[in-house]
C-alpha cells in the first residue's frame, strides 16, 4: 500500500477541483479537508485494487451531503446534493465566481456528471457508479449539463 502522502499529491488537486465545481469555491476546502481526513482514517483497511480517485470523490460527495443536511432545518432526510445551493459566493465578478454561478444553475445530477467526467476525467461507467445510475444516464446528464452550461455561461471560454 502506497504512503498516504502519495494519495494526497496524486489526487488532492483533482478532488479540490471537483469540490469547487460541485459545492462551490466557498465550501470546497472544508469538504476537501473532511474528505482527506476521513480517507486517511480508513486508508489502511481499503481493499486492494480500489480506484482511489473514485473512492475519494465518493467520500467528498457524502461529506457535501452531510454539510447540506446539517444546514437543513429539521429531521428531513437529505440523500442528494441540493439542486440550487443557496450560499452567495464572494469575490463577485471573478472568473471563478462566474463559472461557479453558471455551474450552480445546473440540476445537481448534471452538475455532478459534468464535474466527475469533464473535471476529474472519469469514464462514464465510474460517473454512473457515483451517481447511482446507468452509464447511459450519466452520459446524458453530462451532455445535458454541458449544453445548459454553455447556454448560461456568458464569459469567454479559454
Amino acid at each position: 500500500m502506497r504512503p498516504f502522502e502519495q494519495v494526497v499529491v496524486d489526487h488532492g488537486p483533482v478532488v479540490l477541483r471537483v469540490c469547487r465545481a460541485v459545492i462551490g469555491p466557498n465550501e470546497a476546502e472544508d469538504v476537501w479537508s473532511e474528505t482527506f481526513l476521513s480517507a486517511l482514517g480508513a486508508y489502511p483497511d481499503l481493499r486492494p485494487g480500489t480506484n482511489i480517485e473514485a473512492w475519494l470523490v465518493t467520500i467528498a460527495k457524502r461529506k457535501a451531503i452531510d454539510r447540506h443536511r446539517a444546514r437543513a432545518r429539521g429531521p428531513v432526510p437529505v440523500e442528494n446534493l441540493p439542486d440550487m445551493p443557496a450560499p452567495v459566493q464572494d469575490k463577485p465578478g471573478s472568473r471563478e465566481n462566474e463559472l461557479w454561478q453558471a455551474l450552480r444553475e445546473l440540476p445537481s445530477k448534471q452538475r455532478e456528471a459534468v464535474a466527475y467526467h469533464y473535471i476529474a476525467g472519469m469514464p462514464y461507467a465510474q460517473v454512473a457508479e457515483i451517481l447511482g445510475n446507468s452509464e447511459a444516464a450519466a452520459r446524458r446528464a453530462a451532455a445535458d449539463g454541458i449544453k445548459r452550461f454553455r447556454a448560461t455561461y456568458k464569459g469567454e471560454l479559454s
Binding site: 477541483r17 469547487r20 465545481a21 472568473r95 471563478e96 463559472l99 461557479w100 467526467h117 469533464y118 473535471i119 476525467g121 454541458i146 455561461y153 471560454l157 479559454s158
Partner: peptide, 15 residues
C-alpha cells in the same frame, strides 16, 4: 485535464 473531451475541459481552467 487527462481526457480529451472536445475542449470542454479547458472552459473550467479558471477553477
Amino acid at each position: 485535464i487527462r481526457v480529451d473531451n472536445g475542449g470542454s475541459a479547458s472552459m473550467f481552467a479558471s477553477l
